[in-house]
Every structure is written in structure tokens, then in C-alpha cells.
Amino acid sequence: MAAGAAEAAEAAVAVVEVGSARQFEELLRLKTKSLLVVHFWAPWAPQCVQMNDVMAELAKEHPHVSFVKLEAEAVPEVSEKYEISSVPTFLFFKNSQKVDRLDGAHAPELTKKVQRHVSSGSFPPSTNEHVKEDLNLRLKKLTHAAPCMLFMKGTPQEPRCGFSKQMVEILHKHNIQFSSFDIFSDEEVRQGLKTYSNWPTYPQLYVSGELIGGLDIIKELEASEELDTICPKAPKLEERLKVLTNKASVMLFMKGNKQEAKCGFSKQILEILNSTGVEYETFDILEDEEVRQGLKTFSNWPTYPQLYVRGDLVGGLDIVKELKDNGELLPILKGEN
């Protein structure tokens, strides 16, 4: 019992609870030499309780890192200052400055960020220029990662601010092909890109690595009908489907993949194809609703799985079964018709 109490006391010391803005400011000054991780949490949120446990474990592994939990609603001055809009949110501080941020209950990401900042802390100050060069190289790679790159809050499927949402809506309406980067996932990129491009806000849209601008500029380009000429277009769905159905000689559109079929029919057709020994590729229609719906019209076939040979629809499971029973399946798969 005494040993247990000692451990509990040790754990309690490892993670400090901050109850006021003044206490938080004092802690920032006090811990200027080491990494400070702050968990903005709420007792009513189950993920926060879990993340407190994760943080307690991290505190044992990293005794030189200061871990703090701050009840977001109990200390509104701090929460508002750092724009905490949801819990859990983690902030990372060094030299009293915020250096990183993690929104959400992502234990692996939290662990990775702590490790990265701890190891990056071992750099002597004289390598600051080197670090900056590395960051610039990384930002250059990111802005060139796709012909059209959007740096936004959240993802196109789940935008996390109104401006990012509007930007995605405009790009989709114009059928623009783009990739995106969630700036909430990396505070270094979030802050670094503002300097790199001399543009203070998000979203930011890049084409061929060049900054086009933010939402207001994109709206103007849309109004002046210049947007379509500047940004790359997504290939038409029909062209995309033609490419997909010809991706391999034998192409199976199914629910799941070879390792894990997600419906009985897809599983059965996999077994039949595997028994033929013929090479084939699969496409998981559960991952792409556009393909899932588009292919039904493209091939006038309402169900899945769908099997294609050299771009032509063979049929679904029932047809494949009959072909196998009749001894016709192998010649068809080998393209001997």
C-alpha cells in the first residue's frame, strides 16, 4: 500500500494540474529550458481521460519533459488565448513559445510529437539555420507534392473551419484535381508556411508549387472565370473508369481487397479467381463512392463484385460461377476469345 501510494504520488507529480491563468504563465516561465506539453481536457470527455493516462505513461518515459493538464472550461483565459475549440487538444511549448499543436485524441501522434521535440531539443542553438533550411526544403516538397495543393484546416471530407470548407466546395464545383494537407496535423508546417510564402492565413492554394492565394483570391478567380485555366482538372469520370477497368488484364471491383473481402459474394469470387491461378488486381469500391456508383452506369450492371477482362465486363459472381462450371472461365480470363 505504501509502495502504491508512492507510485501514485510520483505519477501525480509527473503530470501537473494547472487551475489558473497565473499558474500557467508561471509554469511557462519556470519551464523555459525544457519541453512543456499541455493537455486541454474536460472530465466529461472519455477520450480526454484516456489521453491523461497516455500522458502519464509518457511522463514516466520522459522525465525531463513537463506534462500539464488544464481543464479547458475552468481556465477560459488560457483556452481562448490559444484558440482551444475542442478537447482534447495538446500544445507544445519551448522557451515559453508555442512550437506545436495536436488536436484530437491521437495517442501515437502525441507520442511521436513528444519524441520528435525531445530529440530536436538536443540540437545546439548554432544549428538553427540548418533547421530552418531543413524546414524550407520540407515546405518546398510539400507545396510541390501535387500539381494542385491545398493547405487547409481539416480534410476535404471534414473541413474544420468555414473558409477551408468554402475553398473545398469551390474546387469540387469546378472539378479541380487537388491534394490537401491538414495544417492542424503539424504546427511546424502551419507556422513555417506563413513565413515561407509570406501569407498569414489559411487556406492556402498552390499550383505547380506557386502560391495562388487564399479564399478571397480563389473567389475572385472564380468570378473572373480564370480559375479553370489556372488549376488542373480532374479527369472525367468515364475516362477514369476506362483507365481503372483496364488497370490490369483481369480486374475485380469488389468490397474489400484480396487480404480481406468485406462481403460474402466478394469473398466467393476471390476464391474462384485464386483457384484459377490467373493474375488479377482488385479495386475496393467501399473506398471510392464515385467509382462505386459510376461503374454501375458505365457498365449497366447494378451490383458488386464486377469482373473485367481487358476492360470488358464479364459479370458478377453468378456469371463467374456458371462460366467455371462450364469450363469457360479460364479461356475468358486468359483473353482467348
Binding site: N300, W301, P302, L313, V314, G315, G316, D318, E322
Partner: peptide, 14 residues
């Protein structure tokens, strides 16, 4: 062929 037969059924129950 089988594909067309199945299509006839699919169209009937579209």
C-alpha cells in the same frame, strides 16, 4: 450470352 441474360433480369428489377 450470360451477361446479356443477367442484364435482362437486372433491368426487370431495376
Amino acid at each position: 450470352p450470360l451477361l446479356q441474360r443477367h442484364r435482362l433480369v437486372n433491368e426487370c428489377l431495376a
